[in-house]
Nucleic acid binder design. Structure first.
Lengths: 218, 218
DNA sequence: CACCCATTATTCAAACTTGAACAGAAGTCT
DNA sequence: AGACTTCTGTTCAAGTTTGAATAATGGGTG
């Protein structure tokens, strides 16, 4: 099965932009640079959409578009549950050697309730503290000559990375608790894309897809 | 194709322990915790060995073992070249969102010449400095209101992680240049595994495989 | 208008990954 | 000795990933 990172990202963009077709989602994800920091190649997106549809996390609507049809996807309830689960896991899991899951959690933070986010990040603080302590133990063992010296440098780097994250995490939590940033169900952010931005195109297309889907049902 | 991380790791362990069978390599990699920080599952190892053999990076020897046969692998020259290339790339490439490649480079440092390692790490310092500067630029752009606020926190974390790595890198380079650590072609390290360690079993088996292979040829 | 190139939207065969299963050897407990 | 679990060594079908190909449309330029 695809990784937590991959699944959360794709369900996340569907949730953000639904109704949307594969190409829109692909364009969006590529603009986030997912090829580099997640390991999603453009070719994967369509097959993952098919898989998610089979699993009941999203719904596929084949809408007529001139003389052809476009495959447009919307979230299903099971998908929203799954996304919540994935984002919580991504927010809570500390892994210095694979921060990409956490980056997804941050990128998709606007989809999560403020309260849930704070709870998850507190849990993350606890986990980070534990991992930090474990690393200190391991370093002590290595220092007593129980493993080759190269290992100790590697552990030292890992420890410093975890400590850096802990410091950042404290700042981030403070910012959220001070009422900063915008989360699910809260007023629109002060920020909006520039007028000439291609982002509005996506919004218009989604609007049109939504109308077609509603018309089909009614 | 499998990722740089994966390929370097498997070629690396073959290089360290050849001649060895799939199970030995699997055991070794699992003891390194590759399931967690690389994304290698045990099941993948055998098929990757088959692939590498097809590509001419390693050689497969089917040795008789009682009434069955064991598939034992040794490095081919092309594999040694490929491993050098992969380890250099892993050492040089800075990616705050995927440090696993660098961890491989560190784990397998004893397979690289000291001089090559220093050269690669200097290049890494340059790359890290460039990425750090790019992140500062992006943060400035976001601060001017060109993107949602969540993004700036994410960039801030990435920046801090890169800075942490730069500091560690300077220390590591200093240690190497002061003559610390052991690299390819240098005297055996002061460290050796405890007497009762299972590590010696691997050494004995490899020895036996080597004799069988040499006998076959001769 | 005719030509060329970029964008849109998707499919697919070939390769890769993986969980699960197999079967024999070797230890362990009663 | 018999029963039971773990270790050794590997295969494989089912599922996933991806590079490349397809085809239609839109836009700019001489």
């Amino acid at each position: 099965m695809a990784s937590l990172t991959t699944r959360a990202l794709l369900l996340g963009v569907v949730s953000l932009f639904e109704p949307a077709n594969g190409y829109q989602l692909r364009r969006e994800l590529l603009s986030w640079g997912v090829e580099y920091w997640a390991h999603i190649k453009p070719g994967s997106i369509y097959s993952m959409l098919t898989t998610f549809a089979r699993q009941g996390f999203i719904e596929r609507h084949d809408l007529p578009e001139g003389d052809r049809t476009v495959a447009v996807y919307t979230m299903a309830d099971a998908g929203r549950d799954e996304l919540r689960r994935l984002l919580r896991e991504a927010a809570v899991t500390v892994n210095a050697m694979d921060p990409s899951g956490f980056r997804v959690a941050l990128s998709l933070a606007p989809l999560v309730d403020r309260h849930d986010m704070v709870a998850a990040l507190r849990e993350r603080e606890v986990n980070a503290a534990r991992i930090s302590a474990d690393l200190l133990d391991k370093i002590a063992v290595v220092a007593r000559g129980m493993a080759p010296p190269h290992v100790s440098h590697s552990l030292e780097l890992e420890l410093r990375l975890v400590e850096t994250e802990r410091a950042w995490l404290a700042d981030y939590l403070a910012a959220i608790e001070a009422g900063g940033l915008t989360f699910a169900g809260e007023a629109e952010p002060a920020w909006s894309p520039p007028d000439d931005d291609a982002g509005w195109q996506m919004v218009r297309e989604s609007q049109r897809y939504r109308e077609q889907i509603d018309a089909e049902k009614g």
